[in-house]
Design a protein around this nucleic acid. Structure first.
Lengths: 144, 144
DNA sequence: TTAATCTCTAGTAAGTTGATAGAGATTGTC
DNA sequence: GACAATCTCTATCAACTTACTAGAGATTAA
């Protein structure tokens, strides 16, 4: 029951992009530095996020990544599911068509719903907002 | 974000023991067969559950395992945490004392609480009860 | 004593994770 | 058009984890 480091990097990267006010693409190198993520690893993650439809990019000089949708419409759950695969903790149980008369599937279902109640209802806009509330007088990461 | 096969085996084993009406120890081999768990692997898991204070055992002929506490007092969360370690999905994030001004710790806290609301409030007695409700006319697994 | 059990210590094959390397494809600028 | 800056794609890899397996040892009931 854990989110991989890769998943965490993905969340931080999207958060970084969601927090930018100025329009225009952001360089991988910048995200990598601000979020302390190994750049080459981040490249793979951003490419995957792009395939998932969360990000868009532009190459060449002055290229970079930017959100494909408004931050109010990207949930943590969506990003995490795309990077980590299913988040259902009990998905392996009785996967071979074993006992149907088990209480576990129902139980895991409850767990999944509880989880979903948080991760699928929190957007990156929410995260940025919370972050700003806590840092009204401090300088923002992305305002250098 | 996943429960390991080992964790699932542990839950099934405790569930198996919680569902027994007759007193007295249950053999590893029996649990292994009913729950379809490789016996040698189950041995390790049961030993670990014993160390965690969930089970007790008796060796020798007519030996076996049995619950160390009533099933009403053993929660899924307790067993899972003991087998899997922390269930906090975001525990790795900013583990190196990085940004304190991040919205993520707070977010992961919410996730943890939502999770806890289910797994720390469901006991094995609950599971057995649910199981029995669904199987009032069918033969129980452990009644052979 | 013997057979049945739990117990303890090792080992291990397969898979996953968290990267790194380097060449290729685009794009803006001079 | 050359060139530099970026993203993009494919391959590789060491370290670690997972899910087991093996086998000898300790304890108990009959």
């Amino acid at each position: 029951m854990d989110v991989s480091v890769k998943g965490e990097y993905a969340l931080r990267a999207v958060f970084d992009l969601a927090g930018r006010d100025a329009p225009g693409p952001v360089k991988i190198a910048d995200i990598a530095q601000r979020q302390e993520i190994p750049q080459k690893f981040l490249e793979l993650i951003l490419a995957q996020l792009k395939k998932g439809g969360f990000l868009e990019s532009r190459r060449g000089a002055d290229g970079g990544y930017f959100l494909a949708q408004p931050a109010t419409e990207i949930t943590i759950g969506a990003v995490l599911r795309h990077i980590e695969g299913s988040l259902s903790p009990g998905r392996k149980m009785y996967r071979n068509g074993s006992p149907e008369n088990s209480p576990f599937p129902e139980f895991w279902n409850q767990v999944e719903q509880a989880l979903s109640g948080v991760i699928d209802k929190t957007t990156f806009a929410d995260l940025v907002e919370r972050w700003r509330e806590k840092n009204t007088h401090r300088a923002a990461n992305w305002e250098i």
